[in-house]
Design a protein around this nucleic acid. Structure first.
Lengths: 301, 301
DNA sequence: GAAAATTATGAATTGGATTCACCTTCGCGC
DNA sequence: GCGCGAAGGTGAATCCAATTCATAATTTTC
């Protein structure tokens, strides 16, 4: 048995039109074509789908059953086609975001919230858990955008700059380092360093400071959640280096001190990596615009 | 855009097999055919459904969307095909019953209950409300079986006899007619006759007695439900003629009297009308067998 | 009962899908 | 980095199946 959509479409049209001739018009074909088609279909399924005793032919019991299926599938396919059309015209699409930086949730959520309202048709999602090979995943279309601060020139991928931030030292106000105005690599030697549970090549403290200075902290502790990191820091169980936008919550809190890293000014740039062909798509461009401006506004508040 | 099931099947196979070559085997075709097919499909929808950067090609975002539809639709169609196969082998089917006689509910329900267990795959239903033109409806396959006691020779329709019954007079024991052993046409002249709300040609009292004798009852009152008819009769608001199997509930009740109609013995036969080609189908034959034997057993209890 | 409407049929045609043979590209191991 | 094997793409030829055209066989309607 080899059913095709053509058969379902014919069935539905004949039912709707109440006859072959009129159905043929709906389907932009001839009465004869439909007659042959129905004959072929009935041959396939091995039974009569229509009752021909009376002249405008009507569905038989089996035909009615098949019509029910037609009326379930055909709209579904029409919806898919519609979706494809919208996809072409750029009104809809998918925005699955991979984040390499844990702390990015902080500004990403508000941005996504704004985006969601502007592009309700776009399927939005955040995918953690593939921080390691997120660029291959981008090329494989498993995700559509990667938030990263480590651009590597890759064919087919565009790195769209978002905004700059300063990795900032944060410690308990009881910590001896609170006395220093600027924190340098050597200062970490006696400290427990609390970081996100990712490779050192993804941690600003290391890439920007410790690795080059060949300084190893007394201990390193990996913690998933930003709030927990801050909690531990607050009770002087360790120190951390976090993007400045995360720090703003504790800046005015007397339990914490925040200090710039030094000696030179350390600043990093955050990028949104997309597939080359996607960067120009309307909703993607809009997201990038939001991602450039909104975090800065948030920062000011 | 002109999607076909072929496209959905190909998409799913490629996804399942993880590549064109292996998918081609599943679908019993060649790798080239699939390649052309995918190309054609992508041309149709106007975008890439697969990512070709890596070698075993993978679904793109749009392709994933289409796959979701495929995985909803294809099983549905497989189920339909399976249903058709079962239909051919006679294990399943439809048994929508039209009843011309209101009182038939009484024995039909128990029979259907038995049938339902023997043929769980058969779609059973009772359709009231088309008592008038139920034979045309039978030919149009709107229903599959008509319970009737008025067989008319019709091309394409078989009348399968079920069982005989006697239209029986029932009245309140306070009614003067309770004194008579047999009720004749003339006796109805002074009575209010309670009947089902159908044409006189479908009412046994008229077809078997009054019409021929040209007797008109004092009044006629139409009531839907058998229970209500009996209630009215019980309070002597009228008399009725009902099939004997309905009467058995009140036979032992002192408020009622039941009497045969006369002068001759009046007996009618109930038929199950089916389409000629259906009468031999296994489940239909089974239903007819039940319809012949079960009501008689019920009657004995 | 004739006209109109509806479906069926068969041969011819068309057009799209498949095949075949070959090419290109990619991944992987040495 | 070289080469081989696997995977996918291409183009022309072929084939098959769906459509068309013309016409017949119905049934319905007035």
């Amino acid at each position: 048995m080899y059913l095709e959509l053509r058969h379902f479409r014919a069935l539905r049209a004949i039912q709707q039109a109440g006859g072959l001739a009129r159905a043929a018009e709906i389907l932009n074909t001839t009465q004869s074509a439909l007659s042959h088609q129905v004959a072929g279909l009935e041959d396939q399924v091995g039974m009569e789908l229509f009752v021909r005793r009376s002249k405008p032919m009507r569905l038989s019991a089996a035909g009615t059953r098949m019509l029910r299926v037609a009326e379930r599938i055909l709209p579904e396919i029409a919806a898919l086609e519609e979706e494809f059309r919208a996809l072409q015209s750029g009104k809809t699409g998918r925005l699955h975001i991979a984040i390499q930086c844990h702390a990015c949730f902080d500004w990403l959520f508000p941005v996504l919230e704004m985006f969601r309202h502007a592009w309700p048709e776009v399927d939005v999602d955040i995918r953690a858990g593939l921080a390691f090979d997120s660029f291959p995943a981008l090329l494989r279309e498993e995700v559509d955008l990667v938030i990263s601060s480590n651009p590597e020139p890759l064919p087919g991928i565009t790195f769209n700059p978002l905004f700059d931030y300063a990795p900032t030292f944060v410690a308990s106000s009881k910590n001896p380092l609170a006395a220093k105005a600027v924190i340098e690599a050597e200062d970490f030697r006696d400290q427990v360093l609390i970081t996100y549970p990712v490779g050192r090549d993804k941690l600003d403290v290391f890439t920007e400071l410790l690795t080059e200075a060949r300084v190893e902290p007394r201990a390193q502790r990996a913690v998933e959640l930003t709030a927990v990191i801050l909690m531990l820091v607050g009770s002087d169980r360790g120190v951390a280096v976090l993007p400045d936008w995360v720090i703003r919550d504790v800046k005015s809190n007397a339990d914490y001190v925040t200090r710039p890293l030094g000696p030179g000014v350390i600043s990093k740039r955050l990028y949104a990596a997309t597939r080359e062909e996607d960067a120009a798509r309307p909703f993607m461009a809009h997201f990038l615009r939001l991602g450039r401006s909104e975090p800065v506004k948030l920062q000011r508040d």
